Structures are given as structure tokens and as C-alpha cells.
Simulated assay, not measured.
Amino acid sequence: MKNICFTLFAFSISLTASLACDVCGCSLGSNYFGILPQYDKNFVGLRWYYSSFFARMDHNSEYMEDEYSNDTYQTFELWSRLYLTDRIQLFASIPYSFNQMEGSHQKVTAAGLGDISVLANYTLVNTGEDVGNPWRHTWLAGGGVKLPTGDFRQQDQGLLVNPNFQLGTGSTDFVLNTIYTVRFQNVGLNLGTTAQLNTENPEGYRFGNQWNASTQLFYWRQMKYLSILPNIGMYYETGEMHTDNGIRQLNSGGEVWLAQVGLDIYYRDVAVGFTFKNPVSQQMNSDEVAAIESKERIMISLIYNF
């Protein structure tokens, strides 16, 4: 799913179209920082996101056939961090998405450029490495913009595909975030939160505002040129209902809690990361007919520090 598409998953379902996961909900995925590698360096890297969702609509009618959809969302993201000054970091992400909708009434594939994001973070606190002090703190805060570079007018059989399945939202949206990391010797805790404030696109459709928060407990093990960083934690995301020309859309918005486990490996200037998330609790704003379920998520990353 697009990333990142975020943090949350909102979903829109119509009686004549296939059920689909909210592509916008994952847009925050592109703005997910997690445990930032080698804090004092620039980097460029690739990330791959995978998400899957299942939705169904039980009409309980002899005249209307039940509907279902298995949807998968993959995003290949080029992202980078550059220091503009000692305290200001610039982040940029360029996603390429591949979405598949396998439904009872519709099968659609979408591939192409997604919505590009550019953010800047300011370092509020950075205690650095001090041999005499086992504690280390870093705190960043900032924000940026998500640009409407992805296609949001894709059609299938002459009809506009569900907005949730489009490669982009068609709107210019604004992102706020903060990241705090504390480490005592080899054990640390990473806390992060991101909010996305969405605007209306040229079609009059507006995805609900979204917010996520994560906490990760990690262990840092240094071995000459090689370092490993296993981590475990929780991830939460939520989204408001969507609107279409000011009218609130049923079966959109909700919240989900995911348990996550990961491993980062650093060798000299190269870092490889793996994260797996699995839902433990979720509550979507679905009506009595529709049921929407978020499945597992996977992220794999490769970074070069310079």
C-alpha cells in the first residue's frame, strides 16, 4: 500500500465499485522516520513498503450479491536526508507505487509515481556522545508538504476508480512531526508522531486528516565495523472520515494498533533495515453492511550514509 500510504487507513466503499483500502491513509508511510540511522550523517536510500487489506460487503439480500476485495499496496521509495545546517535536516521522498485490487466485481492494477513529500526538521536537543555520560538524548521537530504529483484520475472501463485506490490524492497536504530518542548505554527508546492535514482536491474530494504515533524499544550492539539494532514496539494510526464536495463519506476513517518488530544492521556506511507490523486492534468507521480489515505490513530499507 502506498506510504505510507499512514497512518491511517480510511476506506470508501460504494455499492457499484469494488471495496478498497485508503491509499491516502498510507501516505504517512513516506513520512515515517522510525529510528534514524547514524544521526550526524546525510544519507540516501531505498525503501519498500507492503500492506494488504481485506474488505467485504454482506447485503443479506437475494437480489444483491455479496462483494469482497483483497487489496495489496506496494511502494518503492527513494528518500534522503541532507543537513542544511548543524541543526536543520531536510528530508525528501519520491514514491513509486504498485497497487492491486482483486475483487469479486472489479480487478484493477495501478502503477506509477506517487505523491512526493519534502520536510525539514530542526534539532531541539542533541547531547551527542560523551564518554563520561551514559545518557544520550535527541529531539527533532518540524514539518513540510506533500505535493499532488501522483495520478488521482485513473479510470477503469470508462469510470473513475475509487479515490482510495488512486496513486495520489490530488491535493496539497501539510505534515507536522516530532521525534525523540533517549538511550542509556546500549538500550534506548524512540518516540515519534506525525500529523497530516489534508486539503480538497480539484474533484472536490478531501481525505480526512490523519495522525500516527509510534514507540520502539531498541538495543544497540557495536562490533567494530558492524552494528546491529533489534527493536520492538507499537504503532498507532487514525484518520477522520473523508468528504466529497463537503458530504461525509460512509465507510471511511478509523483507527488501528499494530505491534511491530524490526532489525537494523549497519556495516560501515551502509545500513539495511527490516520491519514487520501486525494489527492487534482496529476499529474502522464501517456501517452494518461493510467490514474492513487491515492485514500485515512489511518495510525493507537500504541506506548509504555520507
Score class of each variant (00 low, 15 high):
106 Q>W: 00
237 E>R: 12
22 D>L: 03
296 E>L: 12
263 L>S: 06
165 F>L: 13
278 N>K: 13
32 Y>K: 11
151 D>A: 06
299 M>W: 03
1 M>T: 07
161 V>K: 08
136 R>L: 07
143 G>L: 01
171 S>K: 02
99 N>M: 04
141 A>F: 03
149 T>Q: 09
246 G>M: 04
295 K>R: 15
294 S>K: 11
254 G>R: 00
292 I>Q: 15
77 E>A: 12
274 F>D: 00
180 Y>N: 08
208 G>I: 07
163 P>A: 01
187 V>R: 11
220 W>Q: 15
230 P>F: 05
107 K>F: 05
3 N>H: 13
53 F>K: 07
215 T>P: 02
136 R>H: 10
298 I>H: 06
166 Q>A: 08
113 L>K: 01
274 F>Q: 04
180 Y>K: 05
153 R>Q: 14
217 L>G: 11
58 D>H: 13
205 Y>S: 01
48 W>R: 12
41 K>W: 02
257 W>N: 09
291 A>M: 11
1 M>K: 13
85 T>G: 00
256 V>H: 05
248 R>H: 12
85 T>W: 05
285 N>E: 08
211 W>M: 14
270 V>L: 11
166 Q>K: 03
298 I>D: 02
44 V>E: 08
155 Q>S: 11
93 S>D: 06
227 S>P: 09
91 F>V: 05
270 V>N: 08
63 Y>P: 06
75 T>R: 14
